[in-house]
């Protein structure tokens, strides 16, 4: 229905669409597409590490560490990504000589998404009932066995669907790295549209390519949710 509405609007506005230019830019589009995939995968891995460490820090007994983790989550979640990209790249990046834009992009995205992943992991940890831990003690599990056989499987079951959803967010958020000229998919499209002025066709293409990445992930997330739903 949405596609039909957009199509109708285009017809009414008298915008003719011509996608014939795509074949001339297929290599650049492919490069941008795979750079987005690589950026997102690298950021997912790093943000997962940050998220796990920070969630552990939030439940640590050392108060300064706990406060530090809470401040990190509060600051990152409370400010827009675009501001973080500018500040990091032009101030922190310049000060510490981070000139590789791919590396800078991965660091910025990881720090940003890490705060959200921290909250996902913390939520999963809090949702594990005390009764399950007590039952683990009662059957004779040691502390380590309780983590291995009770806490981790239940956490994975609760975290994995949300984490997959977050991966889709990382892919979309990576588009903002175009403002520091990381030639990922969005930047590639911006460059192409600047040369041929086919703005609508370029951004339609961009939308379709992002959907090619995010829709399967969304299906996987839903599947994981059903797969691990054991009646919470």
């Amino acid at each position: 229905m949405l596609i039909g509405f957009v199509w109708l609007s285009l017809t009414k506005a008298g915008v003719p669409l011509d996608f014939s230019f795509l074949k001339d830019f297929s290599k650049r589009l492919g490069d941008g597409f795979w750079l987005t995939v690589a950026l997102s995968l690298a950021s997912l891995a790093c943000s997962l590490l940050i998220g796990v460490a920070c969630a552990a820090g939030q439940s640590a007994k050392i108060l300064p560490l706990r406060y530090l983790c809470n401040i990190y989550v509060g600051l990152i979640r409370g400010t827009p990504l675009i501001m973080q990209i500018y500040l990091f790249f032009y101030i922190v990046g310049t000060a510490w000589g981070i000139e590789n834009r791919f590396a800078a992009g991965v660091i910025i995205l990881s720090v940003f998404e890490g705060a959200y992943i921290t909250e996902i992991i913390r939520g999963s940890l809090l949702s594990i009932e005390a009764a399950q831990i007590e039952a683990a003690k009662a059957v004779g599990f040691t502390g380590r066995q309780t983590v291995r056989y009770v806490v981790l499987p239940q956490m994975v079951a609760r975290t994995l669907p949300a984490l997959t959803g977050q991966f889709a967010s990382i892919i979309k958020d990576s588009s903002l790295l175009s403002i520091i000229a990381v030639t990922e998919l969005t930047q590639t499209i911006r460059e192409i549209s600047a040369t041929n002025f086919r703005l609508f066709e370029c951004y339609f293409t961009l939308g379709v390519l992002y959907l090619c990445l995010t829709l399967p992930i969304s299906f996987v997330s839903k599947w994981l949710e059903r797969r691990y739903d054991y009646g919470n």
Binding site: E134, A135, A138, V139, G140, T142, Y230
Partner: peptide, 20 residues
Amino acid sequence: VEAHRKKIGYVFQLGGLFKH
């Protein structure tokens, strides 16, 4: 205490089974 728990069987009110 872990050795002690091994020798005891314990049944809770409800919800003592591992849900996963």
